[in-house]
Amino acid sequence: MESITKNRQSRDVLRAMVERAYGPGRVPGGEGWASELGHGWFNIAYRIRLRDGYEAVLKIAPPSGVEVMAYERGAMGVELAALDLIGGNTTVPVPRVDFADRSRELCDADWFFMPFVDADNLGIVGPGLPAAELAAYKEQVGAANQEINSIRGTAFGPLAGPGDTSWRRVFTGIVEDVLADGERRGVDLGRPYDTVREVLAEHAGSLDEVREPRLVEWDLWDGNVMVRDGKIACVIDHERAFFGDPLIEVGFAGTQLAAFGDPTPFMRGYGQGPLTETEVVRRRLYCLHLVLILVIETVYRGYSGTEQYDWAREQLGEVMALLGRAGR
């Protein structure tokens, strides 16, 4: 996926990064030792083969001069913290961090190396799998997501703080940041921004039911799951993690919006039964948050086509209708 947030670097800079991370004796020579992994949407990722044959993945954050959405600022630091939390408190397979550099000395962004995982991306191979095999993987994703959500926090909000004891305040603030991002760049939602704010306020009472902060991935799409031999080999891309309500996880989105797929295998693996009336309202608010981002980020990423924008605008209309505001 092409995006202006992808921070491509020259081969000389990549060699300098390898030297800093692994030492001069492992710096590759010749040609063909670096290739771009192209399916990501935000960071640039390279597959790097070192001189001794070891294969690594290098992730580089967006260029410092490219404006990103409020919730994406400092995303690589969030990922490093999330990897530490998940790796130290669960059995969920996540990448080991070989080396991280946040000095901005070799390029204008944070970057880190991790081992290359020789496995298939579920987002790529999933559509071609037999239905039963795909469902089995999605059950495993649900179980892994539940284990991640078992990690408790001391407050709602960013991993590094500041936190808040009120999930209502935190979540409404998160949505307000997204709306402010859209207004700043003049993104057309097809309805007034204040109408979205009114809908959020009308249903915000449902958020008060959430009392215990849990680590949430929020971004655990099939495309962030690597699979091999019938099992999850690795869960990648943790830069959007925070402490919140587990029901905000994207695996539950299909309970309200059919476009996000059948959530049944995920929920079965998670151990989640039917949602209560209040949980349904919360999940609709979380769908609202998600599709607002999917609409607004198209401008920040500089996508050349309108396919995602058009699709996300349609989903926004559907979720607004579910929340009692059909039409514009």
Rank of each mutant, 00 (worst) to 15 (best):
Q146C: 07
N149P: 07
S150H: 06
I151C: 12
R152L: 14
R152Y: 05
R152T: 09
G153W: 14
G153P: 15
G153H: 10
T154V: 09
A155K: 13
A155M: 05
G157S: 08
A160H: 15
A160F: 13
P162W: 00
P162Q: 03
G163S: 01
G163E: 05
G163M: 05
D164C: 03
D164W: 00
T165A: 12
T165R: 10
W167V: 05
R168I: 10
R168A: 09
R168G: 07
R169Y: 00
V170Y: 08
V170P: 00
F171Y: 13
F171I: 05
F171D: 06
G173P: 10
V175N: 03
V175Y: 01
V178F: 02
V178M: 08
A180F: 00
D181M: 02
R184C: 04
R184N: 10
G186M: 05
V187K: 01
V187T: 13
D188N: 08
P192W: 02
P192V: 02
P192Q: 04
D194F: 04
T195M: 04
T195V: 09
R197A: 07
E198N: 08
V199A: 11
V199D: 06
L200R: 10
A201Q: 13
A201D: 09
E202F: 00
H203L: 06
H203K: 14
H203E: 03
G205A: 12
E209I: 00
E209P: 00
V210P: 05
V210A: 09
R211D: 00
R214M: 08
L215V: 11
L215S: 07
V216N: 12
W218M: 06
W218V: 15
D219A: 13
L220I: 15
W221A: 05
D222L: 06
D222G: 01
G223K: 02
G223Q: 03
N224G: 09
V225Q: 01
M226C: 10
M226G: 03
V227N: 05
V227Y: 03
V227E: 01
R228N: 11
R228P: 10
R228Q: 11
D229Y: 01
G230C: 06
I232Y: 09
I232M: 06
A233Y: 05
I236R: 01
I236G: 02
D237K: 01
E239K: 03
R240I: 11
R240W: 04
A241K: 10
F242W: 11
F243E: 06
G244Y: 07
P246F: 07
P246H: 06
